[in-house]
Structures are given as C-alpha cells and as structure tokens.
Design a protein around this nucleic acid. Sequence first.
DNA 1: ACTTTTGTTAACAAAATTGTTAAACATCAA
DNA 2: TTGATGTTTAACAATTTTGTTAACAAAAGT
Lengths: 190, 190
Amino acid sequence: MNKEELIKQTAKDLFFNKGYLHATTQEIADAAGVNRSLINYYFRSRDLLFQTVYREAVESLKSQLDKVLYDNVPFKEKLSIFIDVYMKELLKYPYRESFLITEICSKNFALKEKKKSAALAHFLKEIAEEMEKGTLKKGDPIHFVFDLFALMSFPVIMTPLYQKLLDISKEKYKALIAERKQLILEKIFN
Amino acid sequence: MNKEELIKQTAKDLFFNKGYLHATTQEIADAAGVNRSLINYYFRSRDLLFQTVYREAVESLKSQLDKVLYDNVPFKEKLSIFIDVYMKELLKYPYRESFLITEICSKNFALKEKKKSAALAHFLKEIAEEMEKGTLKKGDPIHFVFDLFALMSFPVIMTPLYQKLLDISKEKYKALIAERKQLILEKIFN
DNA sequence: ACTTTTGTTAACAAAATTGTTAAACATCAA
DNA sequence: TTGATGTTTAACAATTTTGTTAACAAAAGT
C-alpha cells in the first residue's frame, strides 16, 4: 500500500476501531510504521489529516446507506440485508460515529457542506408506506429509524463500559452482540 | 461555589454536555473563569482531574441506577420512572457515557476497580421474573437492558450527526427526543 | 497583633507536540 | 549517466501545553 493510504488507514484504525480519539501524529506514524514527517508531506498538517478522515467517514457512511437502501427488494428483506451490512461495518469500525461526533463538537463546525442523506430520505418514505400498509406500527418514521440505529449501534459503542458494569467477559459480550442481528429484526416487526 | 468544585463542574460541562473531549487545562480554566494554576493546586495534574471526573461519572451513573432500580414498585411503573429519570439526566449530560468510553479506550485501563453494578444485576433478575410471568417477551434479560438503554441514549448521543444527515432543525430534533420517553415505554411492552 | 495555613496569581521552566527544512534516497525517462 | 521528480528521513525550530515556583493575599487560629 502506498504510504499516504497507509497513514489514512492507520488513523482510521486508531480512531474508529481502537477508539483512540486523542492520537498524536507521532502515535499515528508509529502505528503505521512511517516517519512522522510523511504525515506533513501528504496532509500538510494534523488538522487536515483529521479533516480528510472525517470527510471520508461521512462519505463512506452515506455511500453504505445508498448501497443498501435503494435496493428494489421487499421491505422486510431489505431491512434484513441492511442490518446485516451495517452491523458488519459496526464491528469493523465501532467508534466511527463517535469520532464524527467528537469532531463535530470540537471544531465548532459552521460547516456549510450539505451532509443530508438522500438514501435516508428515501428510506423514510418507504417506511411510511409500510406503515400505511400496516406492515409496521404507525408513527413517525424517524422514530423507526432512530430505533433501528440505536438497537444496532449502542451496545457495540458501549462495549468497554457495559462489560465493566455487567461484569461480562469479552467473549460472552461478543456472542451477545452477534445474537442481536436476529433479535433486532424480530423486535422491529414486533 | 468553591473553586475546586467549580473546576470539576466546568470540566464536566465541557466533557459531558458540550462533548468537548479534547479540552486543555487552559480551556477548562478559562471556561471556569479561574487561573489555570488552580487546576494543578487542587488536582496536581491534568490527568488526575480527568481521573477524578471519570470516577465521579461512573459513581453517579451507578448511584442513579441504584436510586431507581431498587424501588419497590410494580415493574411497569418502575420502568416508567426509570426512563423518566435517565432521560432527564441524558439531556443534561448527553456525552457522559461517550467520555467514559474514550477514557477507557485511551488509557489502557488495567483497572482492577470493580465497577459492576449490583442494581443492574437486581434489575436483570426482575426482568427475568417478568418474562416468566409473561409480562415481557421471553429472551435474555441482557438484551432487554441493551434495548432499553440503546433506545434512550443513542438518538441523544448522535444529535449533531443525525441533525445533519436528516437535515432537521435543532428545535425539531429536540421535540423528537422529547416524544421518545412515551414511545420507548410502549415499544418495550410491545 | 501575629503566626500559620490556605488560596491565588504571574512568571518561569519543562515537556510534549507540531511544523519546516534541507539533504539523502529512489525511480525512471531522456 | 544525468537530471528531473517524487519520496523519505533526521535535525531543527516553533508552538502549544503542562507543571513548578515563589511571591502575594486572604482567612483562620492563637
């Protein structure tokens, strides 16, 4: 892999996977096995590296939604696929959303970039239709989306804390998370 | 308020409420309106201030659980009270758990401190009983707890990101969150 | 009153982190 | 082979952040 890409991937691994949001350029360089100056060579500054990673994270998040949510398959099946895809990504990058949140909070993002996801908007419409049909309990489709993402993401994000509070082993916790894909699908269609 | 307490409260406000997890001692001091040296006077080092805040966050989290989950009231009512209490706290300190997670991840916590929550254990038993009775759908009580906390916390934690992705105004989002207390209770008892 | 303790501050020192530069190195086309 | 280009590195400089000190102020105790 070329080193520019390597640096980016390593940064993502530290941020999204290890949850190490405070990483210094030196720590990133060490983890990548490259000279720290290369970070400046390729990204000019630490801040620009962070911005790049941030942007790509939002992009990949949105393109993931796009990939699945536009599929022309029956709703229930689409949901099944979606949960599958999204949770796989969650296990790979549990802290991606957490990173985004901290970035948004730390820079006082007066970002004009339009981040709105068209796929999500489309998905919301589809949910509304299902509610009309009676397949789903009626209500604001946004709450349905909230519920869906919450049920998938939160236990993953909270792993280190809940392991402590519930006194569960790493393996047991992992097994519990694995069970959830099916459970969520059931719960969603109560 | 004495300044030691003021510093701590300000740090908590920055971390838990503003989501500003990178705060420097200078920024904390400025926000508190005190001289930065006072932080060293009262807490010796930045790291010890963080540790103190961390510990107190875990303690308050656990004592909150204790306060509500041991109550001797019917299960459904207890849950209603719990959701009420917990979501009120969530709105005050949306990023408390996020702070805990980043701290756990950044220090390689070889913490021997037992963090296990007895209240949660007790709550799990109660849930199991309700499942026996048929009041709740059967399953691993832990998943019930996962679901409960996920539904409450996640949309709150993700506020800045979801506002962007869904293109919702601050006020509208706030209103949506406010609606959830009731919705969660209904959903839980499907 | 004055002595001791506690709180507060600015100035300084030390450490950590980031950014820059110039030279070494590699690759490859002319 | 040369030289043009892009890559990599170490050494250095600048900046930011943290920690320490000593002086001063306020409060409390005697």
